[in-house]
Amino acid sequence: MMNWKIKKNSMMKNKIVLLISALLILISGNLVAQGPEGVEMADAMRANGKIYVVVAVVAIVFAVITVYLISIDRKLRKLEKEAGK
């Protein structure tokens, strides 16, 4: 029973690792992508790298929201367990 549970957990971890690797592979395409010129785009912002700061900020904001959601989820589960008794 114990072993089975550990196996389930590691399978879950494997799946998350797989998902994150897929994410990195999909993003890595940006390193070679280049479009035609003529229309004003934020290329300069991308060239000096500053856009990454914005991406990081937005990602952190979303990470914080996610952590908050998880904490609410956990609190609810605790209450549900108590109410189930």
Binding site: M12, K15, I16, L19, I20, L23, L26, I27, G29, N30, A33, Q34, G35, P36, E37, G38, V39, M41, R46, I51, Y52, V54, V55, V58, A59, F62, A63, T66, L69, D73
Partner: peptide, 26 residues
């Protein structure tokens, strides 16, 4: 698992959404 999937997809959207190539239009 579907919550984790949602979070990972949104991270992908944020990163790729800002850094990915898009068509150039006036």
């Amino acid at each position: 698992w579907w919550k984790a999937l949602g979070v990972i997809i949104i991270f992908y959207t944020i990163i790729q959404g800002f850094l990915g190539e898009v068509p150039h239009y006036f």
